[in-house]
């Protein structure tokens, strides 16, 4: 198992290098990108060759692409003058990216993890209760909720929620991020509760449907019949035999969903003005901030590959049929 994990970690490193290479290629090859585009953007209205050359040199864009790529990759893994990992300096902020990204990542983590807690606590119980009473009124109501939840995009429900809870009823403070350390737990919670719920809605709906379908499938399994034939009571049958195997597949989905959100929940962050990674990714693309784009891409790739690894390991513990060597 340890060897397997080490091998997979090396794989993560390789994936990151490939991602950097691809991002570099896209950035430099697609129209609207490349060293010239960046240099021109920051060289002002009179991008005469001298200023462009100066800007390129300052931004490290004067070297051939493969050298830039090498330097960036080396810094990423070995660190740069701003520490480890070497994430470079933002062209736009003229500041090291590490601190900016760490701050933003922290916001995104709070958003994603909080939302995950909400959707797990809401979605899975709804799904289970529905599966236990299929075709009942409750089941139909729950699945209607799920259908609505799945078809409600954040960019619709988010502004609506803000309008209703903040401006109409005045029960919650406005959008924005309120760090625990600054304004206290209550303010922090008040600012996060709407984004959590709005972001969680879609996932809760999806998880409700998924856990319902899984549990219904499992209820038809032979081993469930065995469990009943053994004389276990219904609670033991459902909890120990049914849920264990019906919720295990959710681990995979959950891992990837969470990883995807950790890479930035762009729309939610924008609607609720949370200074997270997703918001930053979009801004970086628009401002041609090369290293910021590379960094957020790498962070996203890192979260997803890491989540894959974690999911695989956790899965091996949950499902004994799966073993890695």
């Amino acid at each position: 198992m340890l060897r397997y994990i080490i091998r997979r970690l090396l794989w993560v490193v390789l994936v990151l290098v490939v991602i950097v290479a691809i991002t570099y290629s896209i950035f430099f090859l697609l129209p609207g990108g490349g060293s010239d585009a960046i240099a021109n953007r920051f060289a002002g209205k009179q991008p005469n060759p001298e200023i462009v050359a100066e800007v390129k040199q300052q931004f490290g864009l004067d070297k051939p692409i493969y050298v830039q790529f090498y330097i960036f990759t080396r810094n990423l893994f070995l660190g740069d003058q701003y520490g480890w990992p070497g994430l470079g300096k933002s062209f736009v902020l003229r500041a090291p990216l590490k601190q900016v990204l760490v701050e933003r990542m922290w916001v995104t983590i709070q958003l994603a993890v909080g939302a995950a807690v909400v959707w797990l606590l809401v979605g899975i119980p709804i799904g289970i209760l529905s599966a236990l009473r299929p075709r009942s009124i409750w089941d139909r109501a729950a699945m209607t909720f799920a259908l609505i939840g799945i078809s409600m995009p954040v960019f619709f429900i988010g502004p609506l929620a803000l309008y209703v809870f903040v401006y109409k009823w005045h029960i919650l403070p406005g959008s924005g991020y309120s760090p625990i350390g600054e304004d206290g737990l209550w303010q922090w919670f008040n600012h996060f509760i709407l984004p959590w719920c709005v972001l969680a809605l879609l996932y809760a709906a999806f998880y409700a449907r998924l856990s319902r379908a899984n549990l219904l499938d499992v209820m038809g399994e032979d081993y469930m019949r065995t469990a009943r034939a053994k004389g276990l009571n219904e609670r033991q049958v459902i909890v120990k035999h049914g849920l264990r195997s019906s919720l295990t597949p959710l681990v995979t989905v959950f891992g990837l969903d969470l990883a995807g959100l950790l890479a930035g929940a762009v729309i939610t962050e924008t609607v609720f003005n949370l200074p997270g990674l997703g918001q930053y990714a979009v801004r970086s693309v628009f401002s041609l901030d090369l290293y910021a784009i590379l960094d957020v891409t790498i962070i996203a790739a890192f979260f997803v590959t890491l989540a894959n690894l974690v999911v695989d390991i956790v899965y091996a513990f949950l499902d004994p049929r799966v073993r890695y060597t």
Binding site: D222, Y223, R225, A229, K230, N233, R244, P320
Partner: peptide, 28 residues
Amino acid sequence: KEELQAIRGNKIGMIFQDPMTSLHPFYK
């Protein structure tokens, strides 16, 4: 229900056609 549960597995045992799927795959 409770009495039936007390009988199942205790007074009446049952084995099934497909031993592959009749045991829970996650438990020893």
